[in-house]
Simulated scan of single mutants.
Amino acid sequence: MATCTSVPVTIPKDGPLTNVMIKDIVSTFFANEWPKVDSETLVITHQTGYANTNCVVERPKPKGETHSEPLKVFLKINGVLDGEIEVFEHLVPNKHEEAQLCYDYGLSGLGAKLYGFFQTQDGAFGRIDEYLDARNLEPEDVEDENIRADVAKAHAVFHAMVSQRKKKPIQLYYDAVTGGLAKYHKMDKLKRLANEGGVSLDDLVDYDFVSRIQRVTDRLESIGAKNGWCIHDVQFMNVMVKNNPKQGESKVVLIDFEFVFQNYRAFDIGGHFMQKMFKWFDKDSQIANCRPYTDEEKRHFCEEYARQWNEATGESDTGEQVFMESELGFLLAITFDIHNMLCFMDQGDDNDPLSLLGLNKLFKEFASQYEKLGLESLGHCT
């Protein structure tokens, strides 16, 4: 179990953590070798993280000595997320629950080990995790069938994972997201901001996502779609590819569990297929310069997923069943991103042209998939 440990550190208000502070945090969990390290010899590499302090901390290798404690760890101190998470705050895990999810996933052998969960003297929460010698998944990576299979298996294990966290009804999410999208429907402010940014969002803002989401979830229920612990934020930056995996070891690791709650497993699977088309933090374009997932690749992913899901649950799902669910989940994942981006526009008066073009790409993919699945013929939507 992930128990919370108090550490003798207060987060500076006017600068980063010092080497001494970082050493004190790590030494709380590794009490034999780390306390003897000269803090000035630590190599600390800060990484970009949305609202969080993330860094890799490395100590010198002892000369002529073996070591029982890790030489390198990943340190994360949670900041305050704002904006789009507010509408989901009754669903997302608190920091202790998130740490427990990390711990549980680490026990599967597929996730990074959780070494420690802590709270600073001023109330901030953080974690010490296993350092992963890995890089972010790139869109082209999933064209490799071995990497694609490992991503599928990782999601199946996570979705089926046994956790102490209480399961909440998935309808709570759909009530929240449709309530948000109803708020933004036909909002003049969003149209104005987009036009000021040089991109029209009129068609997207006027589109009735709410009734269409209901049709998607009705269809999922009609085919017996399964639920699981979904990550929701399945952008490719939240999948790590190991640089030097051991023989027989998975090449990938899933990270970032700040949005984990119960949902249709199709949400993450379809979302993974959708995210291949985007690179949200690229400075030149948020739309990836590569081809989308092919149907053949999707079906291979779903076969691998079903095999791992059945192994974890004792069920007998087929790849075709998972594929049918994922085609609908693709639509749900798009509306999650659209909702969050419209929320950010509304709250932050954002009209970055790259984001606007990304939004229109999402809208185009939604409309195309919705028509392909024949959902439009079920009735009239505006």
Rank of each mutant, 00 (worst) to 15 (best):
H272E: 01
H185F: 04
R165P: 02
L357E: 12
D122T: 14
L132I: 09
H185G: 06
G358V: 01
S222R: 10
V252P: 13
A124C: 02
Q275M: 15
A2Y: 11
M324N: 15
P12F: 10
I44G: 05
A182Y: 01
T28E: 15
C230K: 09
K186N: 12
M324F: 07
R212S: 10
H300V: 07
A149W: 01
Q308W: 05
P12G: 11
D346T: 11
Q171N: 13
E84S: 11
S222L: 05
L114H: 07
K166C: 06
V43I: 14
D122N: 09
Y115W: 07
R127M: 13
N340P: 00
Q262Y: 12
F88C: 09
E138N: 07
A154K: 03
H300M: 11
T120S: 15
G109N: 05
G314N: 07
F125C: 09
A134G: 08
A99D: 09
V177P: 00
G270E: 07
L204C: 12
K167M: 08
E258N: 04
V157W: 01
Q119K: 15
Y207Q: 03
K226L: 08
C230D: 08
N195I: 14
K167T: 06
G374W: 14
D206T: 01
S377Q: 14
V252I: 13
P139L: 03
S368R: 14
